[in-house]
């Protein structure tokens, strides 16, 4: 495994995964993408990828919600960065993200621009 930063995207929606892939490629972030479909897979991959990993989590997953997954990932390594990436803009969700320890909370758009901004913010030393 190279020392390159990994981006762990946990999202059950294929379209949304494609948007992230395209946005990251276009932005030239220089990160490797790793996808997971559900919470359990997300936890396993986070264990493999730590410590050089940023997790991008959808809020709605088949086995657990994104906030719970966020908590689990922070338990694995509290230095792993987590972005909650959601189609639902809701103050309650944002609040849940914060208490779960998420580092950022951003909305899904068709160009994925908000996610790229969030990732750039987190990648700055």
């Amino acid at each position: 495994m190279t020392g390159k930063l990994k981006l762990l995207v946990v999202d059950a929606n294929t379209d949304d995964r494609v948007i992230v892939q395209e946005a990251v490629r276009k932005a030239g972030l220089g990160v490797d993408l790793v996808f997971a479909q559900n919470g359990k897979e997300g936890v396993d991959k986070a264990n493999e990828l730590k410590p050089a990993c940023i997790a991008v989590l959808d809020t709605i997953l088949s086995d657990m919600d994104g906030f719970e997954l966020c908590r689990k990932i922070k338990e694995i390594d509290e230095n792993l960065k987590v972005v909650i990436y959601t189609g639902i803009v809701d103050a309650v969700d944002a609040s849940k993200a914060r208490t779960a320890g998420a580092d950022d909370f951003c909305v899904k758009t068709t160009d994925g621009a908000p996610l790229i901004n969030a990732l750039k913010g987190l990648m700055e030393p």
Binding site: D90, A91, A94, V107
Partner: peptide, 20 residues
């Protein structure tokens, strides 16, 4: 601080969605 953060993130999100 948590509430302010959540409020700000929600606000940003709404603005972005509105623009879209």
């Amino acid at each position: 601080d948590d509430y302010e953060w959540a409020f700000q993130k929600t606000n940003e999100g709404i603005k972005l969605l509105y623009k879209e």
